[in-house]
Write a protein that binds this DNA or RNA. Structure first.
Lengths: 232, 232
DNA sequence: CTGAGGACTTGATCCAAATCAATAATTGAC
DNA sequence: GTCAATTATTGATTTGGATCAAGTCCTCAG
């Protein structure tokens, strides 16, 4: 694996405090691969052979049942995905595909589990990471169960705005089709929801979002850290 | 804390492999308390002061937003709840209340984190537990996003039947009002859904469930281990 | 035993969102 | 640059589920 990819991975909380020896063992066992868009990296139900780390590009986590499909999450660099399956040596619960061209590190799950058993700092970091993942799925479940689709969209936009350092203008990071699926609605309905947000000072043209009056949108969205703060 | 409560806690996977010394430290720090029904043990947003372990009785985990409320999970003995908040020293994302009279062990989060840092076996067990929790919320999110309420009810009944060792007759473990909320529907709609399941050989009288023709119900429910198998 | 309050059911109505159908706008391949 | 394919929008219609409104049943305190 190319040496230059080490530092950005080493900087991840998950790998930051572990012994050099163990980190290097993981890096030797893993390899970097570049994938074109729309490649299915993982299929739900498969045994978890690798821990994946996104270095570049965007990954969609999705799940299907009975000919229906839904987007569960979008994973952006630099972060890992499907750690829980690797640790438990259980089948993946979600599938993953590249959205854009992506550069991925793949570390055999076997090696991750070995190092997990050898390196206590790593084990602790895994805990922190898993607790974080767990909490973010809980938040997402609350979002779905407690809010209407318009409220989910409004809060989604406010979250994106805060990622964009509060700028009034920013870009939607994913295509509307996937955004609709992520928010648990149809593309048609997302279109209509976007139109109704005009009443709250929001304009979306293509991927370009403009929030005219945050206070107005906040009044509708009623965001709470217990659902909407990703760090909480 | 009464000595006799130790063994059942010690038998939990979370506490099974840790050093005696550390286990005893946790037990000394913790205490057992009995609560009447309908007592709110924790409120979402509060700092996580204690790790809770249910010894007896049933606990409902629920969440609210904007005057709405939804049941997220039911916790039965013997198990812990809200471990992630304790480990991350973050606010609770869900509230908890007793459904029936309940006996609870409360261990100060501070002590849990101390032992977590001292005892590697415990840290590893925490990982397993968190990975399990994470996976169960993911399954629950898939259930909500991919299925209609009738399908969710059908699958819920099949899961309960498997807990009841496959018996054709078994009892609903929670009242219908809460079941409705857990399944993401209104009580009125649950009533109607139950009636439509008569076409699939299901009779529910009070809390008494009878599944006449499992094959028929399975045909509707289309259960999959990737959503419905709790051990998976 | 009895009355009150809560849980459950049933029916009528309303509403949010899905589906169906038809363009319009983008994007990508050549 | 053009055309095909995909994505996005808009409108019409249907449907799943929520809400509103009674009424019944059950439970439990007194």
């Amino acid at each position: 694996m190319p040496i230059k990819t080490f530092p950005e991975i080493r900087a991840l909380p998950l790998f930051h405090n572990m012994a050099d020896e163990h980190f290097e063992a993981l890096m030797r066992a893993g390899y970097v691969q570049t994938f074109p868009p729309q490649v299915e990296l993982i299929s739900e139900g498969d045994p978890s052979d690798f821990l994946h780390i996104v270095l570049d590009g965007t990954i969609e986590l999705f799940a299907g049942w009975n000919d229906r499909e839904t987007t569960m999450a979008m994973v952006r660099p630099v972060s890992t995905f499907i750690l829980a399956a690797t640790i438990r040596d259980a089948p993946y619960l979600m599938s993953a595909r590249t959205v854009e061209k992506a550069r991925i590190v793949m570390i055999p799950s076997e090696d991750v589990r070995t190092v997990f058993n050898l390196d206590n700092e790593f084990a602790r970091a895994v805990v922190t990471e898993l607790a974080q993942c767990y909490r973010s799925v809980v938040k997402s479940a609350k979002d779905i169960k407690l809010r209407t689709s318009l409220e989910r969209l409004a809060n989604y936009l406010l979250r994106q705005q805060s990622y964009a350092a509060g700028q009034a203008r920013f870009e939607l990071p994913i295509e509307k089709r996937k955004l609709a699926s992520f928010l648990g609605m149809t593309p048609e309905n997302l279109s209509r929801a976007i139109k109704s947000l005009q009443d709250y000072g929001v304009t979306i043209d293509g991927t370009n979002v403009h929030i005219g009056d945050p206070a107005d949108l906040i009044h509708l969205a009623k965001p709470t850290p217990l659902i909407d703060d990703p760090r909480h």
